[in-house]
């Protein structure tokens, strides 16, 4: 009799449970040609903390593409589509969360805004449940313009993350205005994106040498980004104005609203496990 009751209960539970979605998470880096974004762009401590928010923390992928190219390039969006399609297929993903940083948000917006450009795009879009865009360069940055000043190009030496590339040209303010108005969705007055695209905004750079928080993700970056703030608004993360970061999709939060001790996130810190950013994202997934 006990066995029968147990069987009935088990059957009831199984019948009452809808088909479980298979959640997946993709980390999508910003400008640069990455071959090991796990180590070089995000760091393992950030990735491994955020992915704990998944039902199965192993269902994640870290994208490695050449985002020095224009967003539509086969080595940029094409590469992203390849890697996402493989991930979706191999892991049977039905609900995909895309976590982007910086220009990675633009590459994803390209895919979401131009579904007919590539026959792989519609399937990817149909699986995406949301995009969490950390500090996306949706409206470009005046720094990209400053890099390209002059009557002829300064072909460059020693540009560490590929700045000076097509991706940097693309992120010039008036260039992004053109792309937003003609090729991308999600900005003011343009059709909305087909999925949620919510942004995390970095609003300041702190580089006080006596403040331990200035050392998260590297003190030297904070000093440099504080200098680059001279080209930016009073609200910026050292690389992007807040207005650019909120230029597409919907604002999720501005760093200080949720980070530990209301610490701001510089552009360098917003891809690292600084001030509980990793935990905030983990809990949202």
């Amino acid at each position: 009799m006990k066995k029968i009751v147990l069987s009935i209960m088990l059957c009831s539970v199984l019948l009452a449970t809808p088909a479980m979605a298979t959640q997946g998470l993709a980390f999508i880096h910003g400008t640069g040609n990455q071959t090991d974004a796990y180590s070089d762009y995000w760091t393992g401590s950030f990735v491994n903390s955020v992915r704990q928010g998944l039902n199965d923390p192993n269902k994640y992928t870290v994208i490695n593409c050449d985002f020095d190219q224009f967003m539509w390039d086969s080595q940029a969006a094409g590469c992203l589509a390849n890697q996402l399609t493989s991930f979706i297929t191999n892991q049977n993903i039905t609900e995909l969360v895309l976590l982007t940083h910086s220009n990675g948000g633009n590459i994803v917006r390209w895919v979401l805004s131009n579904p007919t450009y590539d026959s792989r795009y519609p399937n990817i879009i149909s699986k995406v449940s949301k995009v969490i865009a950390i500090a996306p360069s949706s409206l470009g940055t005046p720094l990209a313009d400053a890099v390209n000043q002059g009557s002829v190009f300064e072909t460059s030496l020693g540009w560490l993350l590929g700045y000076g590339s097509d991706a940097v040209s693309q992120q010039q303010v008036s260039w992004m205005n053109y792309y937003n108005q003609n090729w991308l969705h999600g900005t003011s007055g343009r059709p909305s994106l087909p999925v949620i695209f919510k942004t995390i905004v970095g609003s300041d750079v702190e580089s006080a040498f006596w403040d331990g928080d200035s050392y998260c993700a590297g003190y030297q970056y904070q000093v440099a980004l504080e200098t680059t703030q001279n080209w930016l608004d009073s609200c910026s993360d050292g690389f992007l104005n807040c207005s650019s970061q909120t230029g597409a999709g919907t604002q999720w939060f501005i760093d200080k609203q949720r980070t530990r001790d209301s610490e701001p996130l510089s552009h360098q810190q917003s891809r690292r496990d600084c001030f509980n950013l990793d935990l905030i994202i983990k809990n949202d997934i």
Partner: peptide, 22 residues
Amino acid sequence: SQKVTREQLATASIFPNSSAVK
């Protein structure tokens, strides 16, 4: 009031071959 060397600016991965003063 502020002097930024080439090395410091290069750390930001944005401006190469550059220095700045305020």
